[in-house]
């Protein structure tokens, strides 16, 4: 497909695969509900049965993350979180919402929109279980926001805490209050902010290992170049190897002593020896 105008060209360039990728966008989709009219039921999307429409939407809007909400009798309060690779569904995990407290329900001060959250995952399940590991990766992908080179320390005021216990995932969001502790590091107090969710995992659709590996593959140009002659040991000490010319020990300046001083005759002979050499080279 060739662009016909400059604008179209720029648009396509923005979507091309890049070495350093754009920040991932997410699309939040409201699924078909039995209460809606018949026409809307016709256009119902069921990600787990047929992914075509999702992939179409993803291509249309250049979004690689999606969150799909639906509700029916068999699976009430359903939330599907997933991501795409090359416009194809990579991972997809269905979560049931058991309890939900929205942002408005909690009467507290909020933090501004666009704050980069601190993400904390607690529980051994996130490390042991493959599905939970993928879910963790999905949540990080979803909530981490743009990657930034630096951050204002006083602006760190939003924490998303995920706890996995006994088949349930508690997602809580807190506002951080930095209190004086008397030393450099402040003491942390947390204040419930909402939204908070109690989730259970339902169906999952995980990418095969080789596809996942392919999607994790880093282009060669992005890998840091190996620095030669520099090594580190276990304690973090840096060692450098340097190359030096062989030292001429004959010219080494030792302690000056009267007895070692050159006699005037010797000195003149040396001068005479050196001067013709100079003339030769010149």
């Amino acid at each position: 497909m060739d662009p016909k105008t400059k604008r179209a060209k720029r648009f396509l360039e923005k979507r091309e695969p890049k070495l350093k990728e754009n920040t991932k966008n997410a699309m939040l989709i409201r699924g078909g509900n039995a209460n809606l009219t018949v026409t809307e039921v016709k256009n119902i999307t069921r990600p787990f049965e047929d992914q075509t429409s999702l992939e179409f939407f993803s291509k249309k809007s250049d979004c690689s993350l999606f969150l799909f909400g639906s509700h029916n009798k068999k699976r009430p309060n359903n939330l599907i979180i997933g991501r795409m690779f090359d416009y194809h569904v990579l991972d997809m995990i269905e979560l049931g919402i058991e309890k939900f407290v929205s942002l408005k329900d909690v009467k507290n001060s909020k933090c501004p929109e666009g704050t980069k959250p601190m993400l904390i995952f607690a529980g051994d399940m996130f490390d042991v279980n493959e599905e939970y590991r993928r879910l963790k990766s999905l949540f990080i992908d979803f909530f981490r926001g743009p990657s930034v080179p630096s951050v204002r320390l006083a602006g760190l005021e939003y924490v998303l805490h995920f706890t996995a216990v006994e088949g349930k995932i508690y997602m809580r969001s807190y506002k951080v209050l930095l209190k004086k502790s008397g030393c450099k590091i402040p003491r942390i107090e947390l204040e419930e902010m909402g939204p908070s969710l109690d989730l259970v995992m339902r169906r999952t659709h995980l990418a095969s290992d080789d596809l996942y590996k392919l999607s994790l593959k880093q282009p060669k140009a992005l890998k840091p170049k190996k620095k030669k002659n520099i090594s580190h040991d276990v304690f973090g000490t840096t060692y450098g190897r340097i190359h030096m010319q062989k030292q001429d020990l004959g010219k080494l300046q030792t302690r000056k002593m009267k007895g070692l001083r050159k006699r005037p005759a010797e000195k003149s002979a040396e001068d005479g020896g050196v001067s013709p050499k100079k003339s030769k080279s010149a």
Partner: peptide, 9 residues
């Protein structure tokens, strides 16, 4: 390490 959005160019 998070998966890429698109394959490398």
């Amino acid at each position: 390490r998070l998966p890429r959005e698109k394959p490398p160019p």
